[in-house]
Each structure stands twice: as structure tokens, then as C-alpha cells.
Amino acid sequence: MGIFIEFALPIFKTISILILIVAYLVWLERKVAAKMQSRIGPYLVGKPHGLLQPLADALKLMLKDDSSPKNSDRLLFNFGPIWVMVVSLASFALLPFIFDNQMINTNLALMLFIAISSLIIVGIFIAGWSSNNKFALISVIRIIAQIISYEIPLIITLLVPCIIMGSLGFSEIISYQKNSWFIFYPIIGQITFIIFFISSLAEGNRIPFDLSEAESELVSGYTTEYSGIKFALFYLAEYVHLFGISVLGSIIF
């Protein structure tokens, strides 16, 4: 029992807070995009401003029929979304993102984070490959090329502050910035931040780097054949990963 509380409780706490944050970030994105395009956005579910919309979406996706295409590799097809979700959640064990919540504190945290989060691509690759769909296949080819090529500048920009601060551990990096953030470090700080920002957009597959999901050509990329809870896992994992990179950015800079 004691072990259970010691290990499971913080994990449960982190995951639930994380999913709540991500759900409402999606809601916020939809609202802001709507404002830019002179629309209203979600407003019906949960009267003031459609605040319950994320819950309704999640419920709808969970209740949907689970289907998989003919001739697909059933085992890998089911394994893909689980892998992506698990990996993107696992990377949060290292991030001190809320209430002092860092579960693992090592002085190799940054390196571990990069290593774990770059495993996401394996799940996406499995998903695209196993769904027996040419759109998904082309999307996966694109996404691998993109992520591999943008990961290099991302890691190099992360190394710059680490060399200056002399540590890879997040707590040391944070305490180093007690007086002034790294982004205010003359010249180097700004340049690295700009490169980091651009390549993190590419890492998270966001516009304008959404080649893998290019809606107009590839229908919806590697998630074309997914529906229901498996699609929800992909969707959530994408935003969790994005949130993770943003947290990393706010820690380093």
C-alpha cells in the first residue's frame, strides 16, 4: 500500500492534470482560431463559451465504434496509438511543470527527455505502416524525414544553454536562471530561442510544418484509418507532446 501511494499517486496526479490542461488548450486553440476567422467556435456544450466541449468530444470518441481496415496488421494497428500515448506521457516524468511535480530528478534529465520524446516517431511509423493505406504511408514517409531533419537543430539549440550553464539537469538549469532568463543572454539567447521555436513547431507537426497531415492532399495523414478511442489517443498524444516541448522551452529559456 505504501509503495502504491508513493509511486502510483504522483503518476495519477500528473496524468490527470496534464490531460485537463491539454483538453482546455485544445478548446482555447479552437476559440482563438475562430476569432481570427470571424467565427464563434464551440459555444453550445457548457453554456458560457462552450466550456464542456472537450469533455463532450472525449465522450463521443470513446463511444464510437472501434474499426480497423481490411488487411491491416491488427496487432501493430492497435499498438501504435498506445505507444505514442505512453511515450509522450512518459517524457513528463522528467519535467517539473506543476507544483514541484518532478518525479525523476537526475542531472541527465534533458538528455533523457530528448531520448524518450524522439521515440514517438516509432509509434507514428507503426501506425502509418500497419493501416494498409497509401495516404498514411506517404504521410509517414514525410513525417520521418521531417522529424529527423528538425531534431538535429532542436538538440543543438538545447545544448547551447547547457554548455553555458554547465549542467543537463533541470533543477540546475532553473536555479542558474534565478536572476535572469537565458533568453536575455546577449545575442546567443535570442538566436537559439528562434531556432528552437521554429524546430519545435516542426517537431510537434503544427502549421506551417503539418506536412504529415496536409489535409488537402493526404486526407488526414497517418490517422486516416483511425477512429474512436484510438484516434483520441493520437490526438491527445500530439497535444501532450506539444505541451511537453513548450514546457521544455520555458524551462530552458
Binding site: 481570427m36 476567422q37 470571424s38 503539418d210 489535409e215 488537402s216
Partner: peptide, 20 residues
């Protein structure tokens, strides 16, 4: 615009303005 931009990109803004 939708062909060029996708549903959340700049293309959707063009689409919605034109339809308005």
C-alpha cells in the same frame, strides 16, 4: 484557400471570408 492552407491555417480564413 482550403486547398492551399488546410482547415486551421490561413486558408480557412480566406474560405470563411469569401463565403461571408
Amino acid at each position: 484557400g482550403l486547398d492551399l492552407g488546410g482547415a486551421l491555417g490561413g486558408g480557412a480564413s480566406l474560405f470563411l471570408y469569401c463565403f461571408r
